[in-house]
């Protein structure tokens, strides 16, 4: 999922679910600041400063949290099984969060992590602070009380397995939630129980979309061709014409078999040289991996069937030597999240 989609999710769905309590705290903090301001004019113009400082500090804190989550997730890059388990757990957590928002069953309430009382009390006291930096500190502290949609995004940031991608994910999401806080923080003073059914449904749908996207990658990582993308492409190919090989992991056009080839990691995924990468069953193969600017998970090239993974940073290269499977068929390779994929045909 790209950063822009995450921003849009935050903009339309994330803000409302966070507003119930964080908005109330912000309103309380603004009220405290205003007590210090003398004139009515100061009161009106002055409310921008606490709101903006609250939002900037909140954005910075969540970005740092995203970086930490991405770094934590990178530990799971070490083994393919660990990655599959991590991604699957994130999918279960996201689906649970979404089902809770849709109020499908009371059991799903347990998927939402409630902050401990000691934390909420600390934050509440901070909302009553009259210090100049009170709202900013409060904004940063909201990192301790993430709401449902934010928790689901945090799970996604963890699965990116990269500090940069994790940080960007949280930055984009929180930035998306900010306009609503800005508008209501500046122009409205009472923000009570804004989270209602319609907004919760929108948030749930956005989370389910993120979960499906993650599930797709997880299935791909297990080496199975039955990914959501492939199923959708198959349906598309059944009802209209499409070129063979469009379905990753299924039929591909075989080229001339080679014993040495190159995979380029680019901004848009993987490119191979030769384009139709074909190898002979059971033969020794040398694969040069060159990273020409692919960031995030694309840097971790994975071949699930062979249980191998190579992390190649931007501007770096590596060589992977392996013995081709004895059984002819497609050999899928992908990034560590299963997002970017490619095929080697074994004949």
């Amino acid at each position: 999922m790209d950063i822009f989609s995450i921003f849009i999710t935050g903009l339309f769905a994330g803000g409302i679910t966070c507003l119930a309590v964080q908005g109330g705290l912000l309103a309380s903090s603004i009220a405290q600041q205003e007590e210090n301001l003398a004139s009515e004019f100061e009161k009106r113009s002055g409310s921008w400063i606490p709101v903006v400082s609250f939002l900037v500090a909140r954005l910075v804190a969540y970005t740092i949290l995203g970086i930490l989550l991405g770094s934590l997730g990178s530990l799971f890059q070490l083994s393919l099984t660990a990655r599959v388990i991590l991604q699957l757990s994130a999918v279960v957590f996201m689906v649970g969060t979404a089902f809770n928002l849709l109020q499908i069953h009371p059991l799903f309430r347990y998927f939402v992590i409630q902050p401990p009382k000691i934390v909420t009390r600390l934050i509440r006291n901070q909302s009553r602070s009259q210090e100049l930096f009170g709202p900013a500190i409060l904004g940063a502290m909201t990192v301790l009380i993430p709401c449902g949609a934010t928790q689901a995004t945090m799970a996604y940031a963890l699965t990116t397995g990269s500090p940069v991608a994790g940080g960007l994910t949280m930055f984009a999401f929180i930035l998306g939630t900010s306009p609503l806080f800005l508008l209501l923080g500046v122009f409205a003073r009472s923000l009570n129980r804004l989270a209602n059914g319609a907004f919760n449904t929108a948030a749930a749908m956005a989370i389910l979309l993120l979960a499906t996207f993650n599930l797709n990658g997880t299935i791909a990582l297990t080496g199975s061709p039955y990914t959501v993308t492939n199923l959708l492409t198959k349906i598309e190919c059944t009802i209209s014409f499409c070129s063979p090989g469009k379905v990753a992991g299924s039929t591909t056009t075989a080229g001339k078999p080679v014993s040495e080839a190159t995979i380029f990691i680019t901004q848009n995924g993987y490119e191979t040289e030769p384009t139709n990468l074909t190898i002979k069953a059971g033969s020794k193969v040398k694969l040069n991996i060159i990273n020409r600017g692919g960031g995030g998970c694309a840097q971790s090239l994975t071949i699930p069937k062979l249980n191998v993974q190579r992390v190649v940073s931007v501007g770096q290269s590596d060589v992977l030597e392996f013995t081709a499977p004895k059984m002819p068929g497609p050999l899928a390779f992908m990034c560590s999240m299963g997002m970017y994929q490619g095929i080697i045909t074994v004949i």
Partner: peptide
């Protein structure tokens, strides 16, 4: 109760 935020709001309000 719609979310954990509501739970926090209740506590804040009652206190």
């Amino acid at each position: 109760l719609e979310c954990t935020s509501c739970a926090m709001s209740i506590d804040f309000d009652l206190e």
